[in-house]
Nucleic acid binder design. Sequence first.
DNA 1: GGGGTGAAAGGACATTTGTCACTTAAAAAT
DNA 2: ATTTTTAAGTGACAAATGTCCTTTCACCCC
Lengths: 188, 188
Amino acid sequence: MSHPLRTHIEAVSKLTDEEFDHILSHFTPVKLKKHSSLVREGDLVKHEYFVLKGCLRSYITDNTGKEFTYQFAVETWWISEREAFMKHTPASTAIECLEDCQLLALSYEDREKLGRELWKYEHYLAVKSNMGYVALQKRLQLMIMGSAKERFENFVHQYPHLYNRIPKTHIASYLGVSRETISRLYRK
Amino acid sequence: MSHPLRTHIEAVSKLTDEEFDHILSHFTPVKLKKHSSLVREGDLVKHEYFVLKGCLRSYITDNTGKEFTYQFAVETWWISEREAFMKHTPASTAIECLEDCQLLALSYEDREKLGRELWKYEHYLAVKSNMGYVALQKRLQLMIMGSAKERFENFVHQYPHLYNRIPKTHIASYLGVSRETISRLYRK
DNA sequence: GGGGTGAAAGGACATTTGTCACTTAAAAAT
DNA sequence: ATTTTTAAGTGACAAATGTCCTTTCACCCC
């Protein structure tokens, strides 16, 4: 059974054992308890993370205390605060663990280094970034064109495993509806 | 007075006269009349476009005939159908001219070629792509957290020059509200 | 320069979704 | 096990926004 990170990269381009070992040697394991924070608003974000085990979300809180969930991450997903990580500015979104988590951390410097050393890694990043952009476009489109019901059904269909794993409150804040609305839809 | 495309690239990195002339030599001028289509749904998209003069929008139409505007473009902006252009798949969004337009077209092959030949161009693309991602995130966030009023006011504040140039119908479809709602907000 | 065409404004009403207050259920802590 | 805390379900009502329809305005175009 191959390493989950290897599987993930090889969905884009195949690696030799040496290449993968070299890549993996730049990652640092991180363990976190449920409810702990990986990133707090205002932090500098020096790493991005690959999830080995557990579940996290990134979110922001507005001045009235309402939350908006940008992203969830479970096994084999990446998570970070992209803008802060890239530009070395303070984080405007927070990241918290929804379960006990095991992560692999990669620093900004090592990411750059890997990209320079290994074209396949650079390419993997470019493909990943592009897929992220397209996915975000789709989400925006659904947000604008779809009703609460359509958004909810799409979520359940797209992420059946998340739907029973993540508190409804957070799913609601990801979909941009109230928790009560989710309840009402769920009933039917 | 420098060429608008040069100014745009040089906001990221400075070019020599030779470099810019080399870049520019890969672009083809395109002229289009108001109301004409640059891309139709289902087309293959072989070029991306830099706007010299005029105004365009990209949009999709759902099965009930309702439209959603992805993007506007005026002087010095780029426009294309990113997914179709990148993946060589049929376009799922259309692009139309809201005014008479003068554009510069760059083919996929030439784009790749320029990126390979001139690192500064590759870098310019990467920066542009990253800014696009962050902007899209901000738009999604505002869409989810903001009221119709907030979204509208943000638009007017962010693009004061577009607000009097583009039909309200299209601004409404960009903001994900009905035209009537825009009218009501504008009244006050 | 009058007739036609498309965009915007406005009112009445319907629908969706949010808010609040309360109850129930489940999970965590001691 | 019992208590305490947290999440979810529910109903009544309010607010925001959409829909439909009519009127007005502005701009083109023979």
